[in-house]
Simulated scan of single mutants.
Amino acid sequence: MTQREFEGQVVLVTGSSQGIGRSAAVEFARRGANVVVNYHSNPAKAEEVVDEIEKLGGKAIAVKCDVSDYDAVEAMVAKTVETFGKLDIAVSNAVYSDREFFYEADLDGFRRTIDVTMFGAFHLLRAASRQLIAQKTPGAITIISSPHAFIPAPKAMAYNMSKAAIEHMAKTAAIELSDFRIRVNIVQPGWTDTPGERKFATDDVLEEGGSKIPFGRLGTPEEMAEAIAFMSSPKNGYTTGATLLVDGGISLPWWGKTGRAAPS
C-alpha cells in the first residue's frame, strides 16, 4: 500500500517534464501531494505529467519558467500559492549541461550551464524560502546534486563547478533556515537512465557504461524519485544539511572489483 505522507501538501519540482524530475513529481502525487510541474521548452511533455498525476487522483498544474531568471522563479512560486494556497516542499532539479573541454568550450553554453544549474538552484532556494518564511510554516527544500560535485569528470567543468557550489549553498542555507524549521537537504543521483543522457550518448554507450558500474547498470528515474521523496518527507523532520548519495557504487573504487558473482 502506498504511503500518503504528503497528503494535502504542495510540492514544486523544477525541470519535471521528463527524467528524474518527472518521476519525482509523479511519486509525490502518488503519496498524496498536489504538484507544480515546471518546464522550460516542452509544454506537451509537462502536460503529460499533469495528466499522469490526475489519473492517480492528484492535482497538478504545469508552469513554464526558465529557472535562470529569478523574477520568473518568484512568479512561479506565486502561481503555486495562487493555485494551491501555499507551498510546502520545493525540489531544485532543473539543469543544463554541455560536454566540452573547458579550453575549447563555447562560453555561451558554459555560462548557460552555470546560470541554470547553479543560479537556478539558488533562485528556487531563495524564492521558496521567502515564501515559507512568510507563511510561518515549516517546509523542505531538496537540492538535486550529483557525484560531479566531488568527481572532476572531464569535459564537464561548468557542471562540476555548479554542482559543487550548490552543495555548499544548501548546507549554508540549512544553517540559516534552521530557526524557521525549513529543512534543506541534498540528493546526489548517480548515472541515471534519462532522456537527457541521450544528449551525450547512444543507448549502446549507456548500456556499456552502466555495465562497468559496481551494480552493473544505470540507475532509474524511479529510484531517484524514491530518494527525493525520502529526503523531503515530513517523517524526516530532524534531517537537514544532509546528503544522500544514490549512485550504484559509481563513486567507489570500481577498478578494484573482484568479479565475484552477485548472491542469488
Rank of each mutant, 00 (worst) to 15 (best):
R4N: 11
E7M: 11
E7T: 08
Q9I: 15
G15T: 00
Q18P: 15
G19M: 00
R22H: 05
V26T: 03
V26D: 09
E27H: 09
E27M: 08
F28C: 08
A29G: 05
V35Q: 00
V37W: 05
N42R: 14
N42L: 13
A44P: 10
V50W: 02
V50R: 02
D51I: 13
K55W: 05
A60E: 06
A62I: 15
A62D: 10
D69C: 01
A75L: 12
V77P: 01
E82G: 11
E82M: 08
G85F: 02
G85K: 03
D88V: 05
A90M: 09
S92R: 11
N93G: 06
A94N: 06
S97F: 15
S97G: 15
R99N: 14
F101H: 14
A105R: 00
M118Y: 12
F119S: 11
F119P: 07
R126E: 10
L132K: 03
A134I: 09
Q135W: 12
K136P: 08
T137I: 11
P147Q: 00
A156D: 09
M157D: 15
A165W: 01
H168S: 14
T172S: 15
A173H: 04
L177E: 01
D179H: 13
D179M: 11
F180W: 13
R181K: 14
R183E: 00
V184N: 04
I186G: 04
W191S: 13
T192F: 07
T192A: 05
P195G: 08
R198H: 13
F200C: 07
T202A: 02
D203C: 10
V205K: 14
R217Y: 02
R217E: 04
L218N: 06
G219K: 02
A225C: 11
I228T: 00
S233I: 04
K235R: 14
T239N: 13
D247V: 06
G249K: 07
P253F: 01
K257M: 08
A262C: 15
P263C: 11
